[in-house]
Design a protein around this nucleic acid. Sequence first.
DNA 1: GTCTATATTTTGATAGAC
DNA 2: GTCTATCAAAATATAGAC
Lengths: 198, 198
Amino acid sequence: MVTQTADRRSAILSSAAELFAQQGVRSSTVRQIADRVGMLSGSLYHHFPSKDAIVREIVTSYLADLRERYSRVLAMNLAPRARLEQLIHASLLAAEAAPDATVVYQNEMSYIRGLPEFEEVKAATAEVQQTWLGAIEAGRADGSFRTDIEPRVFYRFLRDAVWLSVRWYRPEGSYTVDQLAEDCASLFLDGYAAFDDD
Amino acid sequence: MVTQTADRRSAILSSAAELFAQQGVRSSTVRQIADRVGMLSGSLYHHFPSKDAIVREIVTSYLADLRERYSRVLAMNLAPRARLEQLIHASLLAAEAAPDATVVYQNEMSYIRGLPEFEEVKAATAEVQQTWLGAIEAGRADGSFRTDIEPRVFYRFLRDAVWLSVRWYRPEGSYTVDQLAEDCASLFLDGYAAFDDD
DNA sequence: GTCTATATTTTGATAGAC
DNA sequence: GTCTATCAAAATATAGAC
């Protein structure tokens, strides 16, 4: 049945993503992936033509989801600061929805560079970057952000803090992704030094 | 001669670190390392007993350097904010001195976890983390830092921003490491929103 | 200290039975 | 759609000549 086939594919994809995130793509063997799904390595090739095809699907479907989230944020037509807050929030939600794919995308760029689909990924990456830089430069232009720190430098610090949070953040207890997003936005925009007025 | 032997060892270590940083430890073969040094793979084993031994030396000597830099900062006995600024500065100088080792340490923790020397590395990592958290908690205690964002959350955002800068920062032109450290400290402590008083 | 040659293991992938 | 069996390539590591 089609449904069962789709389930197997999904199981392979999520098991592979988990392994890739934990120990890297190169260190993860097709035998390990098959083990987790409960089949033998040869059977994987009924669902995917190669190990690289699995990597590709993990990364591209993750990027498609991320771009969709960003486009919804841009459609809100918010002022720079609010737009940046929403981009942080959307990014952290995307990371929560697919933490393993996020790690793979963040850690394995040198591997992805070797895939035939690299140009696609590169284009999506550039679009994501431009979304962030657009909000930052708009805030700089309208006077709501500092001008003594380069937008590119701010972007990179913020980006690494946001994306690498998948390495340590685990949704537990009362510290939700919403709270994390709020703290991140407040920290990067307002700083950590105590406010004068409280 | 002893000097020549030492030179060969250094050449192997730096070529290996460069490769490991570029494409990951697992993706880098002993043949590739030997190629870069200008010898055949078998000859590497006269200098190191295994590929893992090369990884170990890169990581442990990096951590030794980092701990030394941190201890010099702590010896200054600075107030929390100034101490944090110096920790950022010291970290970025360590990263500049050994960018490849920094990348390896940041990216390959899952590989390092499999080495027999993992407990050593783990201890050093814990010490480094405690150095940061000590400064942050001191600043929280004396009222110079906010109390509405958990020290652990602040630490992790700051840590990722600092260490992952090796992925993009290249010392070029007038934007020095000193300037990068200053921008990083100012950003995390004062924020990116425009100051009210300028 | 480096090279030649090779042992051993692991890995991605395939062919064909069921 | 999965398994058995296996191939071919690649990788770490070793032994011994020079």
